[in-house]
């Protein structure tokens, strides 16, 4: 895969890809890399979700890509606008780690698992099946999602590369 066919997705960011382009996001910790794929139309989408819910937002204009409950609807509307169909979509998730094990953990430090739970709840709401996930643990991940077959490649420092 040459670098000019890779679309970078930043932190609290989302994007879509098709025509053999890939989506990539680096250094996922407690954030969740949520990917959606429509195999019929070969359209892929990725969101780098940072927080579980926009209820806690205190910013003037909400960055939709940041929160699980706003990123998924936004990603769906971007993908359907590009010709994808929600009913044929499949989801894959990676990330949501707990980077540091701390004693007496406050809720904000448990953010990884909460991000995953929130993403799964939203996917359930839209009846999008989760076909694979590599979440949790205590390590960071870099992920790449290609738009031809919807294969998610996950790389980590400790465990190398794997595909789901």
């Amino acid at each position: 895969m040459t670098s000019d066919t890779i679309i970078k997705v930043g932190m609290a960011d989302l994007n879509i890809a098709s025509n053999g382009y890939s989506l990539k996001t680096t250094g996922l910790g407690s954030c969740v890399g949520l990917t959606l794929f429509d195999p019929l139309h070969k359209i892929a989408g990725m969101a780098h979700v940072m927080l579980p819910t926009s209820n806690i937002a205190r910013e003037a204009t909400i960055n939709l890509a940041k929160y699980a409950d706003t990123a998924i609807p936004e990603l769906l509307s971007r993908m359907t606008a590009a010709g994808a169909n929600v009913r044929s979509m499949k989801a894959k998730l990676a990330g949501g780690a707990q980077m540091f094990a701390m004693s007496g953990q406050s809720d904000s430090m448990r953010i990884g698992p909460r991000n995953v739970e929130s993403c799964l709840a939203m996917l359930d709401f839209y009846k999008i099946p989760v076909v694979a996930q590599d979440t949790g643990g205590n390590f960071g991940r870099t992920i790449e999602f290609e738009s031809e077959r919807g294969i998610l490649t996950i790389r980590s420092v400790q465990f190398g590369t794997k595909e789901i």
Binding site: L28, G29, S30, C31, M50, M99, G140, S156, V157, Q158
Partner: peptide, 15 residues
């Protein structure tokens, strides 16, 4: 302590 990608580690402090 963690030995990992800087992005993954630091994002933890940005929540």
């Amino acid at each position: 302590i963690a030995l990992d990608m800087a992005g993954a580690v630091l994002s933890y402090g940005l929540m």
